[in-house]
Design a protein around this nucleic acid. Structure first.
Lengths: 219, 219
DNA sequence: ATTTATTTTTAGACTTATCTAAATTATTTT
DNA sequence: AAAATAATTTAGATAAGTCTAAAAATAAAT
């Protein structure tokens, strides 16, 4: 099945919205994600339903079919592998890779992404810490320990982030917090749930809004 | 100026046709290169003329303006750098890279291609031996010595090929003739202008049709 | 349980890039 | 130089993806 970039983007959007919302995805939600009007979304999901990529009943929202889900995961796989390439090989920063990967994920080839994966030595996670689906579409989701729930005095390793927005990525860059870094929680402030954390560049105060968006592995 | 992939492809086609034909490029030639109908070409070149990318007078064919030429060279640069990446880093063969590079050359980014170039350590030629334009659009064309004109008994190095068609590339793969290989002309057959050539895999007979499509540097 | 508000869908229009068929211009041939 | 052939352009249509505005359906509020 040969899909257009646009169709692929719709599937990808529905995939991540479904993951975040669990039930059927609404027209409006998709239109916001894809920055288009609701009426355009209706047109497109009817077309996708026609191709058996989504389940759709009028006014009831959509969900991905098995095939639709498979394709969406393939795109996610491509996106994340390209992100690794851009960061590890081309010296891009954490916050710069997303936009480019949005383009590269649509390159059509039977072999390219597997060769890229081998070249990158089979990374398991992308620069944001999100897992990279394997060739068969299997995904290993990491456990949901957030920095905010690490106990005082304990150390942990940064394995991912929840919020991938530009401002957040830029903020982490400034704090020099990167994947793999070890962080030690020195103290917590009950008043606002901020914490004092020892990082590679010294001790810094981190607000709860930040700490609850950083995935960590306890040591 | 933000161009569509299609517009970029037209500029690229006009560029290489102009290089091969020297005078104005005709509608039909473009239509053959781009696999479309002549009437579609007329529409598009009018649009490109509107944007000052080509010089166009009805019934007189087109040529690139300075801006048009600059953009075309940028695309050629991208195409050839991606080809080097695919061949050197991802283990593709000579004859497989073109189609993929056709897609990758249209990725939009201010920084990507320069970072890629640095990562590839500033290659000067692509896998077909064609020169890679630098950031400013300067191209060094190699001298036009063909294997067919190498004297009997002399050796040379393969530095490029003229015909980049799929059958020819596959044929060279079979003969294990690659860029950088040294070839020695053992004898020439006046009857059909074929030559006996010593290669890495032994002595082989090469027809004139082949030998006049291989660029070499005399030793 | 109506009314009100919100969401979703339909209808019709626009743009890009393509096509076919017909008309026009240029080039060859005789 | 006129007739025949070939190339080019115009006109009108089509498909993909989007839009606005209006209609229909669902959800929320009183």
């Amino acid at each position: 099945m040969m899909l257009s970039q646009t169709e692929e983007n719709y599937l990808k959007a529905i995939y991540s919205l479904a993951y975040a919302n669990s039930n059927n995805v609404s027209t409006t939600l998709i239109s916001e994600a894809i920055k288009t009007k609701a009426s355009s979304v209706t047109d497109m999901i009817q077309k996708l339903a026609e191709k058996d990529l989504v389940h759709y009943k009028k006014y009831q929202g959509v969900s991905l079919t098995e095939i639709g889900q498979k394709i969406a995961v393939e795109i996610v796989r491509k996106h994340r592998l390209w992100e690794v390439f851009l960061l590890n090989k081309l010296d891009y920063n954490w916050d710069e890779v997303h936009e480019l990967a949005e383009q590269l994920e649509h390159i059509k080839s039977e072999t390219l992404i597997d060769k890229l994966e081998a070249f990158l030595e089979f990374p398991t996670h992308d620069p944001h810490g999100d897992p990279i689906p394997d060739k068969e579409g299997n995904i290993k989701h990491h456990n949901d320990t957030m920095l905010s729930s690490v106990e005082t005095g304990k150390s942990c390793i940064v394995i991912g982030i929840k919020d991938s927005s530009d401002p957040f990525l830029k903020f982490l860059d400034k704090l020099q917090i990167q994947l793999g870094n070890t962080l030690k929680v020195i103290s917590k402030e009950p008043f606002d749930n901020s914490m004092l954390v020892e990082t590679t560049i010294g001790s810094i105060s981190i607000s709860n809004q930040i700490s609850k968006n950083i995935f960590v592995k306890n040591l």
